[in-house]
Design a protein around this nucleic acid. Structure first.
Lengths: 236, 236, 236, 236
DNA sequence: TATGAATGAGGATTCATTCAT
DNA sequence: TATGAATGAATCCTCATTCAT
């Protein structure tokens, strides 16, 4: 009984993975030799498998099987299972970074900007489960692989700058307290957005509530925004 | 050469694991056949290995090697790798439950009680990394095994009761707002306490800060208490 | 078409290998659990395969197949293909060393002692083709593995001592010249005994003569003894 | 990571290989399509790889990588790995043959001629390590491929003729004994010249002496000449 | 209760070679 | 003539588990 070769894996339970195969086929013409497509296809399937099964749990055979190509190509392009895993991390971190470009928080008033940032963070984690899971998996690996991902550090620097800017403007406007560290605040926001996604299975089992249910989701979103704004607000 | 047989594993980086082997030898007399001791010994080693490597990453051979006994005994007592993993979960959830008994929050004033609860939750997660890791791992497994752990559901019910009591008394005392759901609040507290431990590796890599450093630890503790209290406080 | 799984391999052409399987079965009772026998059996088969195919050419599957046990045991006892190869080297060097003990050259008159040493060296190389081949293979590997073989260095020291003793006594007796270095002489003797075995295939192809044919063998033996004695003899 | 792709391989330890790549580029004009140059380039690289790693140990990918062209060309010109190996043998045997033309032993007095022949043989083996290694490798292959090399047999016939001529003239001059077989003598000379090169790694490991060191080299050369002359000399 | 030996099924990786352009 | 992409068949190795004592 090959565990990894079944269609889904433990975590996907019905909800389609973020990495859709649609992308891999977007060109109308299905050319036979298309390295970019081949790589993308492998990467998408691998993202699913690694995020569903972890690094050790993932099966190279299972990945290859769901690919349009063969196992050999996986090694041809990515060298090893670990190389493929790293490429997945790279892609996933690149994706979130690209999205964050569109958030023009600096143009908003500090309170609204903070709200927008939290909502974006919330929405991103809520939707990009693969991302959340891969981060979780990296922490089990002791962040061994993410260290080598170029887009990783850069991404975090950007976020901190955004938060620093918001805090500074909020303080200047007399809205925010002046004793909050930007990195600490980022940790706080991340915690709130990450945990309910990453640990939703134990949460669901414990309380019979699926935190990804739309109603709960909306409530959590509001709660988290509220909690963050209360936290940074200057009290008289 | 053998990956799993090295003393530590990816996550322990210097800090001794919670499951010390000392416990397994606490009786002065080393009797020749002591099933209970044997089982405890296996369980302690397994806790380290599973929490360090994950379910799929853990190696039965590696566990057996660091045990005072042989691999056969592991199967004799726990039936299979999964059985052993489940026994580890069972033990770990039992431990936290035992500790929570000592928290007599109901005897404190609601604000102080809330502070005490948050601090307890913070300290527990901060110290019991194995617990945090195993919860993480369970979420990668889709909470498949924790569902069968008896002490699991009970534990959560207790926590919610504690929070409901605190909220009710805080509302009655005019200190807490009355629109907070107990389970949501539990999730919020958990998020803040869990994330910084569970994801400390990626956090450390991203920001060059180790969240388990004493100074940072103290600041986080205060911040989280502050954030929770601000969140539940009734505003005029 | 599995190259390595055919009974013999390129070099054995009909002549039984030195490592007979007979040894592995010498106890009348074929016990089911006999680690020593299992190891010996694997080692014997591996000696054949490695000496016939080289380190890279040898196939672990082929070795396992001709064994009384499974491939897994090979890894159980020897860890890896390279580990097994090294164990083979160890055994083969141990064998020759054991044999050399029986040569009591020091009890003979220097000329007769030298003759005996050369004849022994000749006979050993002539018979132990596996040894010769494995040395050859090691030289292709850059002597990478033999360096770690304990019995290797010791063996060579012994030979040099023997030669030094013979030379000294021969010089004292006015029979040998006094300008011969022992290691150089050892190299000379080895060259003559080794080459005709190690390179007998190209030699056979080139001249249509099989140097292992009994008649040729005897002539070579006499020639080599003659050449060595002429080389060391003191001329008037 | 890729074993075979490193510049050298196990045996070259610092000393440049005989098959320099310079040759492949000797024409000033680098024409775009130059089949001869491409072939020569492949052959040179292949000589290095095969002589360093053996037939099974050599990697087609490694060869292709160090080539100015692609793997496909390798198959285009040589058909298969074995075909390429055979072409390398062919080239290497052609080289030695060409050199031997320059030795005009027949014009020398028999003793001097014999000395010249031995010195030439010594020098050739000493310098052409690739040749020595490839012969060694062929013997591991059971001389399977060299049999099909045209220049092979011819070369050997020539050498024997030379030796026969020297012996005959030496006997006629009363300098050489008359009971030496030309092929046996060739074997003896080859042994002495070949062994110290082919087995220099195990020799070096065993005695801490590198036989290719200039001082040792000179001494060996003299010793071998001496040994051969003593062997053929007519005694009174 | 305890143990070293043994194993089948699977798992990652590499190989020489061929295809489409 | 030349090339990057693609591949099936091995090849080495590991895993959780069971057997015989």
């Amino acid at each position: 009984m090959k565990k990894g070769s079944k269609a889904a894996g433990p975590d996907t339970n019905g909800i389609p993975s973020d990495a859709t195969q649609k992308d891999a086929r977007r060109s109308d013409v299905r050319r036979k030799y298309d390295p970019e497509q081949t790589k993308r296809n492998i990467l998408d399937v691998a993202t699913q498998e690694f995020s569903a099964m972890g690094l050790t749990g993932a099966r190279v055979d299972a990945i290859a099987e769901r690919t349009n190509t063969t196992k050999r190509m996986l090694y041809y392009y990515f060298g090893s299972k670990e190389g493929l895993y790293q490429a997945v991390l790279e892609k996933v971190y690149g994706d979130i970074r690209a999205l964050e470009q569109d958030l023009h928080v600096s143009e908003l008033d500090p309170v609204e900007g903070m709200r927008a940032l939290v909502e974006f963070t919330f929405d991103y984690h809520d939707r990009q489960r693969d991302f959340v899971r891969l981060v979780t998996i990296e922490n089990i690996n002791g962040a061994k692989y993410v260290e080598q991902v170029k887009s990783f550090k850069g991404r975090n620097v950007t976020v901190i700058h955004t938060i620093e800017d918001l805090l500074a403007r909020g303080i200047a406007a007399g809205k925010f307290r002046n004793d909050v560290d930007a990195i600490d605040l980022h940790l706080l926001i991340s915690s709130l957005c990450f945990h309910r996604v990453g640990n939703r299975h134990t949460f669901g089992t414990a309380f019979g509530r699926d935190p990804s249910h739309p109603r709960l989701r909306a409530r959590h979103r509001a709660m988290i925004v509220d909690a963050v704004l209360r936290f940074v607000r200057k009290e008289d």
